[in-house]
Every structure is written in C-alpha cells, then in structure tokens.
C-alpha cells in the first residue's frame, strides 16, 4: 500500500491528462484515418492516404506557417530580450508596474486586438495615412495583406510570452555574480556574454517554445492582417473543419503540424539543450 501511495496521489493528474489530452488526441487520430462526409457519416477505413493528400495539397501553407512562425519568434526575441533585461536590471522598485503594463493588452480579446492592429496598419489608417499626408510615404504604399503585416501581428500578439520567461531568468541572476565577473577583469560586454547571457538561456529556451508553437499554428493574424496571399496552415485547418466539414483532412493536417512542431522542438532541445548551451558558454 505504502508503495502505491505516490501513484495514487498522482491519479488526478493522470486522469486530467487522459480526459483532456489522450482522449481527444485518440479521437482525432481515428478521424484522420476515416473517409466519408458529414451527411452520410464517416467510417474508419485506415486510409493513410489522407495524410499524403493533405500534406501534398497544402505544403505551401505548411512551409509558410513555419517560416512566418520562425520570423515572428526571431523578431520577438530581438525585441523581447532587451525589454526583459531592462525591466529585470533597471526596473528598480517599479518592476511590477512594468510587468502589469506589459500584460495590460491581454485584458482585451485576442481577435479584437488583432483587428485593431488592422485599423492601425490600414492603408489610410492612423499610421500610414499620417505618414502619407506628410509625404513621407508614396500614396500606393501598403502594409496590410503583406507577409510583413502577418509577422508583425504574430510578433505583437505573443511578445509578452517571450518577455516573461526571459525576465524570470534574468531576475534570478545575482548581480553579485556579474560584479564578480567585472572584478575578474571582464568588461561590461564580456560580463554579459560570459555570465548574464548564459544564465538567461533557460528563459530564452522557454520563451521560444512558448511563442513559436502558437505563432506557427495561429489562424487569426493571417486572416485579419494577411489578405489572400498569406494563408497559413491554421486557416486551412479551420476552413476544412468549419466550412468544408472535411474532418479527416483537418485532423490529418493538425496531426502533421503537431508532428512537425514536436520534431522541431526535440531537435531544438537537442541542439540548444540547457546543459549544452551552458557548457558552450563557459568555454
């Protein structure tokens, strides 16, 4: 009995996983191998060809999603790291205020926020309209319905999820350790490269995971900001499910996306695993 106790205590956790992860996944896996239509119903035919058809038909959008997701993640990292650094080391007693400001936009619905970005970036909107009226931009210049708008929207929407884990990691860096590096003849730059950066890498690692996955799978930004030429895989899945009611194709695409992301994450963890990174930085 004693030896079973830990497992029994973990039971609610296992049940949670089973109900909310394993069961839906299994259902989706099963659907992805069926054939049929909404009216006549779907039957299991183990048609693995669903996958081949889905990937073949939408490889452009799949690749585009990965590229946009990656671009947005890089942009978030470039913008987010300095912000996190600044809050952690220069925020002083106002740190929590800055963090609150960072999260403030999240009190507004995700879709609404993206639509307001649409207004902001509209051809004659506040930003472009003003710049055009000042003659700083040509009249035909537009941002909406470009890849740039989609990536910018993705970047904006997930930026806090990049900043927060990096902030947490930087916040835990003991300023004395940075001083110790300077005491041992390191310049400010060297102290950052040899001490602060390596110690913040676990945060960077978490931030990239927390942003790359949802940004790649997101349908909203491409739909609102991207026009017709920038459809991402999330849009396709949504359309197949809700418009075409082609559940097997939608499921197969979802699984394919999940597999690609998982493989990517494992490769990333392998190459950039925390321990490896730290070892490398200590050289």
């Amino acid at each position: 009995m004693r030896r079973l106790t830990p497992y029994l205590l973990a039971l609610p956790g296992w049940m949670w996983l089973a109900i909310f992860l394993v069961v839906p996944l299994a259902a989706m896996a099963s659907v992805s191998l069926q054939t049929g239509n909404v009216i006549d119903g779907f039957v299991m035919t183990f048609s693995v060809s669903n996958y081949g058809d889905a990937i073949g038909g939408y490889s452009t959008q799949l690749v585009r999603s990965l590229v946009y997701g990656a671009c947005a993640t890089v942009a978030m990292l470039v913008i987010g790291y300095p912000v996190a650094y600044w809050i952690a080391f220069k925020g002083g007693s106002r740190k929590s205020v800055y963090l609150f400001l960072l999260l403030l936009p999240f009190f507004v619905s995700f879709v609404l926020r993206t639509i307001s970005w649409g207004f902001l970036l509209a051809d004659d909107g506040v930003l472009l309209g003003t710049l055009k009226s000042w003659g700083l931009l040509p009249a035909g210049f537009h941002v909406l319905a470009t890849a740039f708008a989609v990536v910018a929207g993705l970047t904006y929407n997930w930026l806090p999820f990049m900043i927060l884990p990096i902030y947490v990691a930087l916040e835990r860096v003991d300023p004395r350790v940075v001083e110790a590096a300077q005491d041992l003849y390191a310049t400010r730059g060297a102290a950052f490269r040899k001490v602060v950066l390596p110690l913040s890498l676990p945060g960077v690692f978490a931030g990239v995971l927390m942003t790359f996955v949802p940004a790649t799978a997101d349908p909203v930004n491409a739909q609102v900001l991207g026009g017709t030429g920038n459809t991402m895989i999330g849009n396709i899945i949504q359309t197949e499910y809700l418009v075409n009611n082609d559940y097997p194709t939608a499921s197969a695409l979802s699984f394919t996306l999940m597999a690609v992301l998982l493989v990517g994450i494992f490769a990333y963890a392998r190459v950039l695993g925390t321990e490896n990174v730290l070892e490398a930085a200590a050289r």
Partner: peptide, 25 residues
C-alpha cells in the same frame, strides 16, 4: 577607474561563484 581595471580581487560575502561554470572554469 572601473573594477575590471583595478589590480585587486574580491571574495564576495556570498561567494558569487559562476553557477553555470565548473570549478576549473
């Protein structure tokens, strides 16, 4: 003169060792 250009070294109250480096490093 900044600390990195002073010919003195400090042993900190809480040691302030580099947690991500081996003893050797």
């Amino acid at each position: 003169v900044p600390p990195n250009r002073r010919d003195v070294n400090m042993v900190f109250q809480s040691y302030a060792l580099f947690p991500h480096m081996s003893v050797w490093d």
